[in-house]
Simulated assay, not measured.
Amino acid sequence: MASSPFSEELRVAIDAVVEASKICRHIQSTEGFSELSKNDKSPVTVADFGSQAVVCKAIHEAFPGDPIIAEEDSAALRLPDQISVLERVVKEVKTLFPTASSDEVLSWIDQGVSRDAAPRTWTLDPIDGTKGFLRKEQYAVALALLVDGKVQVAALACPNLDTAESDEVGFVFSAIRGEGAFVAPLSNPNDRQPISTSDCTEANQARFCESVESGHSDHSWSSDIAKELGISRDSVRLDSQAKYAVVGRGEAEIYLRLPTKPGYVEKIWDHAAGCLVIEEAGGKVTDIHGHPLDFSKGALLAENQGVIATNGTLHDEVVAAVKKCNG
Rank of each mutant, 00 (worst) to 15 (best):
D81P: 06
S37Q: 08
E72M: 14
P67W: 04
V44I: 12
K91A: 01
Q111D: 15
L124E: 08
S51I: 13
R120M: 08
P126D: 01
F33W: 14
S114P: 04
C56L: 11
E61T: 04
G65P: 00
E104V: 15
T30F: 01
D66P: 01
I109T: 08
T121P: 09
S21P: 06
K22V: 07
F97S: 00
A16L: 01
A53N: 00
V113W: 10
D40R: 06
R88A: 12
W122K: 04
V93S: 00
V17T: 09
E104A: 15
L36N: 15
V44N: 03
A58S: 09
N39I: 11
A16H: 00
K94N: 02
Q82Y: 11
G65Q: 04
H60L: 11
F63L: 09
K41S: 02
R120L: 02
Q28Y: 02
E104Y: 13
A75F: 13
G65E: 05
R11C: 09
K94Q: 08
W122G: 07
D73W: 10
I83G: 01
V44K: 05
D73I: 06
I69A: 04
E8L: 13
G112T: 10
E8R: 15
A20P: 04
K94P: 01
S74Q: 02
T121K: 08
V89L: 09
T123Q: 08
A58P: 07
G50C: 03
S29R: 05
Q28R: 15
I68P: 05
T45M: 12
T30K: 00
S74L: 05
I109Y: 05
V46Y: 02
V55A: 13
A16D: 07
H26I: 06
P67R: 04
G112Y: 10
E61V: 13
I68H: 03
Q111K: 07
A118P: 11
H60V: 14
T45V: 09
R78D: 00
G32I: 14
I14E: 08
G50D: 02
V46E: 00
A75I: 10
P126L: 12
T95W: 05
P64H: 09
K41D: 11
K94Y: 12
P67G: 06
D15N: 08
D66C: 06
D73M: 00
Q52R: 13
A75E: 11
G65V: 09
F97L: 13
I14Y: 03
A47N: 02
K57W: 11
K91C: 11
D66Q: 04
I59S: 14
Q52K: 08
K94A: 04
C24P: 09
D116E: 12
F49E: 05
V54R: 01
A76Y: 00
E104T: 15
P43K: 06
R115Q: 08
V46H: 12
I109V: 02
E31G: 07
E35Y: 05
D40S: 05
E61S: 03
W108C: 13
W122M: 14
D125C: 12
D110T: 09
L86I: 06
I68N: 04
G112V: 12
A75D: 02
V105G: 09
K41F: 05
K41A: 07
S42A: 08
Q52C: 13
P64K: 05
K94W: 03
V46T: 11
V44G: 02
